[in-house]
Nucleic acid binder design. Sequence first.
DNA 1: GTGAAAGCGCTAACAC
DNA 2: GTGTTAGCGCTTTCAC
Lengths: 399, 399
Amino acid sequence: MKLLLSPVSVPTIETGLTSIARNVAELTGRVNSPLGKVNMSSDGARRRDVTVADVAKAAQVSKAQAARALGNYGAVSDDVRERVLAAAEELEYRPNELARSMNTGKSHTIGVVVGDIENPHFGLATRGITDTAKKSGFNVILINTDENTAAEMDAVRVLLDKRVDGLIVAPASSVETEHLRRVHESGRPLVLLDRSADRLAVETVAVDMAAISYESTRYLLDAGHRRVAFISTLRTDAGYSVEMRLDSSQISDRIEGMRRAFADAGCEFPEDLVRLNAGDAGSIRSLTREVLLGADPATAVVASDGLIALSVVEAIQEMRLRIPDDVSFLMYDDFAWTRLTTPPLTVVAQPVYEMGAAAASALIRQIEGRPPVAPAPEFQAALVRRGSVGPVPVAVPAP
Amino acid sequence: MKLLLSPVSVPTIETGLTSIARNVAELTGRVNSPLGKVNMSSDGARRRDVTVADVAKAAQVSKAQAARALGNYGAVSDDVRERVLAAAEELEYRPNELARSMNTGKSHTIGVVVGDIENPHFGLATRGITDTAKKSGFNVILINTDENTAAEMDAVRVLLDKRVDGLIVAPASSVETEHLRRVHESGRPLVLLDRSADRLAVETVAVDMAAISYESTRYLLDAGHRRVAFISTLRTDAGYSVEMRLDSSQISDRIEGMRRAFADAGCEFPEDLVRLNAGDAGSIRSLTREVLLGADPATAVVASDGLIALSVVEAIQEMRLRIPDDVSFLMYDDFAWTRLTTPPLTVVAQPVYEMGAAAASALIRQIEGRPPVAPAPEFQAALVRRGSVGPVPVAVPAP
DNA sequence: GTGAAAGCGCTAACAC
DNA sequence: GTGTTAGCGCTTTCAC
């Protein structure tokens, strides 16, 4: 609560401060000691906010000059600037960013739309986004869609209405993308995270899923596995079949990678072991049981994300099957806890934080109208071989 | 892109639509087919947004009437409402929430300030907050402070400048709370999460840490442990000592609970095993080694949160110590992965999601000026006994 | 350098 | 019911 200037610096300024004090007292309706709190306000009711007009009056300058000094733009003499700043400090003036945004058209806010912030994958990505945004002076409005396209359309609309400067969306669907197309066409910067959108030429930050899926499937094939199950939360109307068009680029890319690997190895892709619609922990557990207990059971299971992985491993443990002796296991996302299980789990590590950060910088670059730097950086996932993938068991384990 | 009304419904309306179409064409500078897109805008530059004035002109009513129909308030005849809505649809009008907020004084946005969104604890709490906020039509601006008070002060200021309707803060410090007091005194609703703030009478949603700490310490004492280590990220200037005043109510409550349990059991509290300032994975590992390898080593370790727990368990495994045979382990927060280790971990479960949700409803209640419901709900943590706490080993394990 | 005045897009009095 | 007219708090011409 100190004044910006020492009252002894220059005589003229001292006069300034004095009259400021008087004007401040008039405005607040009370006399105050030089360094005391001006706005006592434990008195319940929220008083009218202090505005530039108030500051201007106290500093005895025009509103325009006060605004210039406060927003530091335009031309302001040192004398005026000092008086204004002192008055602002004294009155505890705070700019109304809403009003500011209204005439500048910039809100310095970006909207982030994710499927589930509770999922550490998005938690980490969000951290990458917020860290980067903060560095450039941007704030983040976060909306959760629960991987539901209707909620996503809503989210996008709300964010646009709030006049965010740009959007980062991890689309729930790669097919239903009309709302995203609209954002893009409206001219507001948009960056996609994790998943792409069909026929929408928008900057997208994601890893090459087909490639890493191919690589990790190769790894399983090399270990002798032919019956590989793939479990994903992706919601579909029917069970999986080859010809169906999947809603998520991310998942279809992964399955595509698996198919290619099987084809290249001259093996038949175990289409019957692809399980979608894995929802809550219970359903994941029963899906796991299904693929592991059928007539021709899976010898390896691939979990599509960390949340699924938890339930799959739990189910496997409940079935008293050993990893990797009885069944091999592979999962997407490298969380710290995957090193703590016995054995530690083999995972596909994605540079999640970096991708969030990259999405944010790309968006901010667009917002600020700067051209893309060189070729957009490619993100590669990596297969981290730990202990959960082993050779195919010789005999099928007794249930 | 369908019109709200079928043009055949009533003759007068048909006329209305026709003139709307004409006026729309004038505004957009192009003629368009009845059901076609009006605002083609792949043409790069973001055009001026459509405003109520535009809609009013197209619908041939006053700005006020258009605004009333659009914001549905005040009195509007069916005829006018229909024409306005049709015009709005046709022009793809979207309200400017910024402008709306400016005159209503409500932004329908709440600010959430947490230490680290990457920590699943906050991820889950945030989910509770956003879910609840959405139900009441509120959005969330999320700011990460990295558990740094300066960043928190900044965050609060920014949020206030953006005129959020209220704030939920998980304070980095229970001692440096001037900035929070200011929020409170300024009259803007504030709810604290997880930790309380000294001498600040603000609604706070947190579990009774002292109680659960007492209970879990009793559990360890009953198992024979006397040398119990406690590892926390809490930053302090010096090492821990009894008389020091801790910056976090959460941590001091826990230590307080431990002390009481030790005192009640007639045992001496192993003050030398309290380790603060646990930062990155590396430092946590070395702290763990320290308490486990000293002259009078710990026989049980308590990890203050999930992130710390990961590194502690990892360190224990690296040291080739077995849990719970060589060392017992207890941690705060019940994450799904704690059931996957061998043995599964004994944890203190907190209703994190519910607390986030409760914080949000309390805040929204305050924002809407409703009185507190009955006594605020108490949140209790629970000790979940799994397999990581065992009896004290008879002989000290050889290093 | 400075100040008066005109917006930004909306809501809210206030007349009719 | 409807239209006119003020604002909200700020930025931004445009004169001086």
